[in-house]
């Protein structure tokens, strides 16, 4: 067995792998969007810009301070998370009583500011960031070649997604969080500091985006525009999956990444648009999204 439908199995596996890598980023980013949306009722348009920031901070850490990949993987999300907290405290907190659309508009403005700032400082061309020495090379599995780094991206994303799911569904803090999402006033009445939870939630969501960015830095060129290209696709992913469930976000993200990879193999011209086409079909068949609940 070396070919299916005249497609060499190596090519098929390579595209599947690429699809899973992209899907991992979709999963982590849409998870962050869902967590923020659940608590703040805001669609964070700045998510793509925060993702880009994560990648840039990793790159800058290496370029200016000599901070290697592994510490960056921790420091970049931390810095982006703190930046997110700053945004929440200084701006977003004033919008909670208004129409949710204002949150989208504000974060859109922020995305422009962040993106414009980096474009102005570094231009639009990409900065290379090399794969850490421990993860260069790869396995030869016989039927395909698996680069270590790609495997690591998928593994790390799944771990982070699982940890987030576990934290929200199975821990005490997660229970407070779910309670505050369900009924903020009542939760506050029980003595839980809801505004603090909201702040930390936004910070955590931002940190997830930053983590995805740092993780992506070695597989793509670090460029100021990398986030905005991705975030619109992630929005489509969110519409397809619905933001009702955490596992739903993860499954939808990975699944769409794989579909995109396969499309790239079968009909490359459509690989950019296939996610949007699927979104249109889902809207026709199941407007609330695959895992969503109609309110």
């Amino acid at each position: 067995m070396t070919a299916i439908f005249d497609i060499p199995i190596q090519a098929l596996m390579a595209q599947l792998m690429l699809g899973l890598v992209n899907g991992s980023f979709y999963a982590v980013l849409s998870l962050g969007l869902a967590v923020i949306f659940g608590m703040l009722n805001i669609i964070n348009f700045a998510h793509g810009a925060l993702y880009m920031m994560g990648a840039f901070l990793a790159w800058m850490g290496l370029e200016y301070l000599g901070i290697g990949y592994w510490p960056s993987l921790l420091l970049a999300p931390l810095a982006v998370g703190l930046f997110g907290i700053l945004i929440e405290r200084s701006m977003l907190q004033w919008l909670y009583k208004l129409d949710h659309l204002y949150g989208l508009l504000l974060t859109f403005g922020l995305a422009l500011v962040i993106e414009g700032f980096f474009t102005n400082s570094y231009g639009v061309s990409g900065q290379p960031y090399s794969i850490p020495a421990e993860l260069t090379g790869g396995f030869n599995l016989g039927f395909m070649f698996l680069p270590y780094y790609r495997g690591w991206v998928i593994l790390a994303s799944l771990l982070v997604c699982f940890a987030t799911w576990f934290g929200i569904e199975k821990t005490r803090l997660g229970a407070y969080l779910r309670a505050a999402t369900e009924n903020p006033q009542l939760t506050q009445a029980f003595g839980i500091n809801v505004p603090l939870m909201v702040m930390l939630t936004y910070g955590f969501g931002a940190a997830l985006a930053g983590f995805a960015g740092a993780l992506a830095a070695p597989v793509i060129q670090v460029s100021p525009l990398m986030g905005s290209h991705l975030i619109i696709t992630v929005f489509a992913v969110v519409v397809i999956g619905g933001m009702g469930s955490i596992l739903g976000s993860i499954v939808t993200g990975l699944g769409l990444g794989v579909i995109e990879g396969l499309t790239n193999l079968l009909y490359p011209a459509a690989s950019n648009t296939v996610v949007f086409v699927i979104m249109a079909i889902v809207l026709m068949v199941r407007p609330a999204g695959l895992f969503g609940k109609e309110k």
């Binding site: 500011v113 474009t119 102005n120």
Partner: peptide
Amino acid sequence: VGSLVTVIMGMIFVVCVLAFR
């Protein structure tokens, strides 16, 4: 200001939403 135009547009956006709805 060249490419800083985007930054300025973004700031106007933020100010409009926060204080000038």
